[in-house]
Design a protein around this nucleic acid. Structure first.
Lengths: 161, 161
DNA sequence: AATGAAATGGGATAGCT
DNA sequence: AGCTATCCCATTTCATT
């Protein structure tokens, strides 16, 4: 049930500074990063290996949706007919196969799932909802929220401590 | 108003394969990546430089929220008193200063903003809503949706083409 | 015009103090 | 943790198709 099967790795102030700096600029060389956090390259390299190894951080490549022809983002609030484990699992498997569904969250509240969707345009979105989603019998209700704009997007997550 | 001040860079099949491979594994060396897409290192290096330079892709470091003590994710649907430009801008500036607010989307529908929030626990969330958000007079309504689980999270966005 | 081959320069990491 | 040395990777130049 829990996602965190990871043993709680302890992070000291230096580790946190490393993570901070990498969030600000993931392209930093190890030498520059070492200087920024007041270390030399060798110990930094070990700390990085530890952080990557433990899954605390990981490298990623972020694609600009618009640049690859994905001009429309939307959120879909989905309610299932029943939230029985089996029904939920079937739904999850179905949306896992849909590349347009970028995120799927199980949530509290008035609906069961919050999906983030990325498509080409409105026509593409209609196709997705009308053709793809309507083929899933477990869906009772779906409410769409179209994204105008994303004024803040701070991948990754990292409060003050 | 538009985010895409970028001239529409044309991407051929090889570019798309490169992006695909990097999304699957951002830690690939250029040699391995070149082999995967049927190229040698030199032309691959140029294509990468072009893609990074144009902002089509960018490197990032993703932090595991749980590993840094952020055990609770939530979405907050925010309605403002007025959605006049000035009011909206003030709100955006305010949430931009809150590290707990990881994403902010301007949206259509029953509310004006959809925020993604990452905090330590429920107590921390209460503090954020009661102490921080209640200090913003432009907020008319706020509805919270707590995340149980995230069964799909495909950074980054990339449909079939 | 874009690719492949080779060489060079730089950064990352392992061993030692 | 720092220093040093080695190795590997990335990039640039050049020849080629």
């Amino acid at each position: 049930m829990s996602d965190a099967a990871t043993p709680p790795l302890s992070l000291d102030a230096v580790d946190r500074r490393i993570i901070r700096c990498l969030l600000e600029d993931a392209t930093l060389s190890n030498n520059d990063l070492a200087e920024k956090v007041g270390l030399t390259a060798a110990p930094l390299s070990r700390r990085l290996a530890r952080l990557y190894g433990a899954g605390v951080i990981r490298q990623a490549v972020i694609v600009d949706p618009a640049a690859v022809g994905l001009g429309l983002q939307a959120f879909a609030e989905v309610t299932l007919n029943r939230t029985a484990p089996e029904v939920g699992q079937r739904f999850i498997r179905a949306i896992a196969a849909m590349p347009e569904v970028v995120e799927c969250h199980t949530v509290t509240g008035d609906f069961d799932f919050l999906l983030k969707i990325s498509v080409k345009d409105i026509a593409d979105y209609k196709r997705l909802i009308w053709n793809e989603f309507d083929r899933l019998p477990e869906i009772k209700a779906l409410r769409s929220t179209i994204v105008f704009d994303t004024p803040k997007h701070s991948l990754g997550t990292l409060p003050d401590w």
